[in-house]
């Protein structure tokens, strides 16, 4: 339903473009913006443009950054001999939150999925191979544990193995803080497959 203001309608249809936002939510968001002070709208508009003007991908790890190379790739306090390969930038944030991993990253920008028309050339695979040729000891593959992630893991491991590096993958199993009795059978089965000697 159109409102009595073309400007408001325009804003609603912009919000409705966003992923996960339906028409109703878009209307609510637009009404909210309308009711807030002008400065807030300016801040929001500026943030949108800023992100487009300043954010780009790191030429080394393909993660999003404002400086090239990114702060992780240019850090001297990190271990440059270990690269953790992930699907998306979000995965880097998730691993960084742990403060445990001190190596570098490589963001593929997705995973193999012919259904969505994504093949190796659509991912940052070539960049990974170039990086792996010198000064790297270990590559950790940290794809999502689903059919596409597994296929991508296998694909990369076949490409990387001939280079004589140590290729590892992160473990699959029971999440910490959860209960065994409430874990699904597939996860428990995988956890048994990946059991370790004490």
């Amino acid at each position: 339903m159109l409102s009595t203001s073309p400007s408001l309608d325009a804003l609603i249809s912009e919000f409705a473009r966003l992923p996960g936002i339906g028409r109703k939510t878009a209307q609510r968001l637009a009404m909210y913006v309308l009711k807030r002070p002008r400065e807030e709208a300016e801040q929001m508009a500026a943030a949108l443009l800023h992100v487009k003007d300043n954010v780009r991908t790191c030429s080394i790890c393909c993660n999003i950054t404002e400086d090239d190379p990114c702060s992780i790739c240019s850090s001297t306090r990190r271990d440059h001999r270990v690269i953790c390969v992930v699907e998306e930038s979000n995965d880097v944030f998730a691993i960084e939150r742990t403060n445990e991993f001190r190596g570098l990253y490589h963001v593929l920008g997705g995973r193999l999925s012919p259904l969505e028309g994504i093949g190796p050339d659509d991912l940052h695979v070539r960049e990974l191979l170039d990086r792996s040729r010198e000064g790297v000891d270990e590559i950790i593959l940290a794809m999502n544990p689903n059919v596409e992630g597994e296929a991508t893991t296998l694909y990369l491991s076949r490409l990387l193995k001939p280079m004589g590096l140590r290729i590892t993958r992160i473990a699959r199993g029971i999440p910490m803080g959860s209960d065994l009795e409430f874990t699904d059978a597939a996860t428990i089965t995988r956890a048994f497959e990946g059991r370790i000697a004490l």
Binding site: L112, P114, G117, G119, V147, A151, R158
Partner: peptide
């Protein structure tokens, strides 16, 4: 899609086969 992306078939088919 093998007509349009023959290189992908060659390089990734075995990965799906394994899966």
């Amino acid at each position: 899609d093998s007509d349009r992306r023959p290189a992908d078939v060659r390089s990734t088919l075995e990965v799906w086969d394994a899966s």
